[in-house]
């Protein structure tokens, strides 16, 4: 399973970011979310929503084995094992692996909780099996 986003429907409201930070950190803080809303204004006038594809490249390069898979099949960060080396952030193709020492003592990423989907009024986000999606 993975998270999908149809950026053309995104209105930039960022509700997904707060819902995400509440799940990952139990904090209200859009800067601590595992998705990114990238606005393109005034031209061409649209939003780009970056989400984790669960490609696993972060797990492959993690030298401490901190990035593991959960019961939903999503890669997540085991906080106790992360030493903030930043290797994962460098390889993430979507720019949604976050290593910000001043904000968190461990790196963070999407663990597929689905809360972002629940608060998105525009149906931008959904979770599906990659095979289903391709079909």
């Amino acid at each position: 399973m993975r998270l999908y986003a149809d950026s053309s429907k995104c209105c930039g409201c960022s509700a997904c970011l707060v819902a995400c930070s509440l799940n990952l950190f139990e904090e209200n803080n859009p800067k601590k979310a595992a998705l990114r809303v990238v606005p393109h204004f005034p031209e061409p006038g649209n939003y780009e929503l970056k989400v984790c594809t669960q490609c696993g490249e972060c797990a492959q390069v993690c030298p401490t084995g901190a990035i593991q898979r959960n019961e939903r099949g999503a890669y997540f960060v085991d906080a106790a094992l992360c030493d903030l080396c930043g290797a994962c952030e460098t390889v993430c193709p979507e720019g949604v692996m976050f290593v910000v020492p001043e904000m968190s003592e461990h790196s963070w990423k999407c663990d597929l909780c689905g809360d972002c989907v629940l608060v998105c009024g525009m149906n931008v986000l959904w979770i599906a099996e990659p095979s289903t999606q391709a079909a």
């Binding site: 429907k9 209105c11 930039g12 409201c13 509700a15 006038g45 649209n46 009024g121 525009m122």
Partner: peptide, 15 residues
């Protein structure tokens, strides 16, 4: 594009 304020599920903003 539909353009929403913070946390808005029903954006009235139209770009």
């Amino acid at each position: 594009t539909d353009k929403g304020c913070f946390g808005c599920p029903s954006p009235c903003g139209k770009y």
